[in-house]
């Protein structure tokens, strides 16, 4: 449990840093193109890579901290006991989804890895570098699902933190 919490915190830290980094790289790109007429070949692609890795790895953290957008109109009216079961059910749905996506996402990554496929873009990096984010992210999400399932079953549900859209 504590290990998973530590992993979640680390991924949140990583994701927030990656997204901020992409802002810095793209600013550099605009300055380079606009003022020095020298567009880079790496800024667009590397900042995209930041997004591709930031989102999946932080899914587990977002689940535990209840940052996902959900409809609470009905569950809020339920008795604590029913709410607990709704929570268990909801985590099971995410768990099944994650297992399937992990399996097939790994297949995509592994195929590109084995074939040494490249992206064919300006940087022409190996395709598995972006593709590995999906299996990695969903493996982390499964860990978080399991700890949250334990919390839900033992009746220690955290409060909604909600999310701003």
């Amino acid at each position: 449990m504590r290990l998973v919490t530590a992993i979640e915190t680390a991924t949140a830290w990583l994701a927030a840093s990656l997204l901020t980094l992409s802002g810095g790289m793209l600013t550099y790109e605009v300055v380079a193109r606009y003022f020095f007429n020298a567009p880079t070949i790496w800024a667009a692609e590397l900042s995209q890579l930041c997004l591709i890795w930031a989102c999946p790895v932080a899914m587990g953290w977002a689940l535990t901290h209840r940052r996902h957008i959900r409809v609470t109109a009905v569950t809020a009216q339920l008795s604590p006991r029913l709410r607990q079961w709704a929570e268990v059910l909801s985590i099971l749905v995410i768990l099944v989804f994650s297992l399937v996506v992990l399996a097939y996402g790994f297949e995509i990554f592994f195929d590109s890895f084995e074939r040494q496929r490249t992206t064919g873009t300006m940087l022409d990096m190996p395709s598995w570098i972006p593709e590995a984010s999906v299996p990695a992210g969903f493996a982390l999400l499964i860990l978080s699902c399991l700890t949250n399932l334990w919390r839900a079953l033992s009746g220690t549900l955290p409060d909604e933190e909600g999310v701003m859209e």
Binding site: H68, I69, L89, F97, V100, Y104
Partner: peptide
Amino acid sequence: LVGVPVAYALGMLGLSMLYLGGFSPLMAP
């Protein structure tokens, strides 16, 4: 309404439909 986050509700429903319709689950990742 059970409280599944919107993202996973849509994803899981889509995945189930793909499975039931005989389409490849590879479409999800």
